[in-house]
Structure formats: structure tokens, C-alpha cells
Design a protein around this nucleic acid. Sequence first.
DNA 1: GTATGTACTTTGTATTGCAAAGTTATTTTA
DNA 2: TAAAATAACTTTGCAATACAAAGTACATAC
Lengths: 108, 108
Amino acid sequence: MRRAKQTSPSPVEPAEIDPVIHQPARLLIVANLYVVEETDFVFLKRTTQLTDGNLSTHLMKLEEAGYIDVVKEFVDRRPRTSLRLTARGREAFETYRASLTSLLSAVK
Amino acid sequence: MRRAKQTSPSPVEPAEIDPVIHQPARLLIVANLYVVEETDFVFLKRTTQLTDGNLSTHLMKLEEAGYIDVVKEFVDRRPRTSLRLTARGREAFETYRASLTSLLSAVK
DNA sequence: GTATGTACTTTGTATTGCAAAGTTATTTTA
DNA sequence: TAAAATAACTTTGCAATACAAAGTACATAC
């Protein structure tokens, strides 16, 4: 017995999903930076609930990708790491959001 | 010089992102199964562009999670692996889509 | 002066994800 | 009809991740 050919709900095609942004912790970091313009390590640690080590390495990865600027300075005699999205990072997030949104909405 | 307190665009909070579905290859597989109801290995291989080995292991993972049913049979003397979402898988995808969508749209 | 806290970074490990190679059966070609 | 190619997978080996525990440096509290 032959099988009917696959009928037409068009297949969901592979999209470029930026792996740097797609990782849950980093998505959260980037999303926050997107709305908040500038923040610091401590704020992100609180809102993302990441451990110190984990947050630290994810920030490095985002920096290496050129998606964030990291400024380390001393404020009130204690270190403060300030973070903001670069233009590139902002764009990457928008692109990511667009492709994810379209992938998810392609599906009725 | 003191810094102004973080002003209010509310932070994007961590959401439960199902790691089984969040992986790009598997997201594509699940999205396809969601629209197509039933397919087979060969179809998925074509539309996802995954290598055989890669597709195979992702399917196993989805099966272990209880998100898909895998039926292996012989059709015209050659093996056919048929795939469909379970109720659980369907639900998991909907939940995933909801939380991702809300995370992404929380961001103006 | 030592213990506690803050703001991180480095290290060690277990888990992924991937493709190359392997398996089993079936056609095709010579 | 034996050898080669094709189909539909699965298993294996390895390189890249992600995570938390431990470590560092400095400051304040006791």
C-alpha cells in the first residue's frame, strides 16, 4: 500500500539562528540590555538568576562576539562592571527576534 | 559622582525555556511535525538539512522526552521511520512558543 | 586582626552537538 | 551473478558548551 505524498502545509525551513543569542542565559542578558540601555554585573546577576561564574563567562562570550561593551571601573572603592549592547549586538538581537518570531508564527 | 538608580523599563525575567525544544535542530523538527501531523525521516532530513547522524540523535532525544512517537516499519522492502508529535510534545511546543514569544515581545 | 561580604574570574567536569564511519538491506551495472 | 552504488538509518569519537565550585582581590564589620 502506497502512501499519499506529503500534502501541502509548507514545511518550516531552517533559518539562521544566531547561536550566541539563542542560548537561554544570553538571550535573557541581551533582552535586558536591549530594554535597559546600560546595566551592571550585579543587576544582571539578580534579574537573570545566574551564578557569578556563569554570568561572567556568558558576558565574555557576548563581548567576544562584539555584541556588548564591557567597562570595568571602580566606584566607591569597589569594582563595577558596566554593560551595554553595541550597535552590532542590537542589530543581532533584532535579527534573531525576527527569525525566531517568523519561525514560530509560520506554525499555525 | 553617584549613579542614578536603574530606572524602570521592567527587567526581562527568566522564563522556563524547555531545553529539549530550544535547540535549533529540534525546534525545526518539532515545528515541522506540528504543522504536518506525520512525516518520515527522509522528509525531515530534506527540510531540516541535518545530516543523518544528527537527525537520528535528535529524534532519539525527542522520543526520550516523550515528545514524539517513532514507528519503524518496512514499506516497499525498505525501512521507513514515521514520526509524529505526541499530545505531550504538542503541548510542550505550544508552551515553548508562548514563553519565547512573550519574552521577545516584552522587549520594545 | 580575623571573619564576613562583595564583585568578580578561573578551573574542572559533565553534557551537548556534530559529522564521519559503520550497519544492513536493496537495487543497479557490468 | 558478483561487484558497486544507493537508501535509510545508527554508533562512535571528538570538540565545543554550560555550569557551579573554588579561587582572587579588595573592603568593611566585629
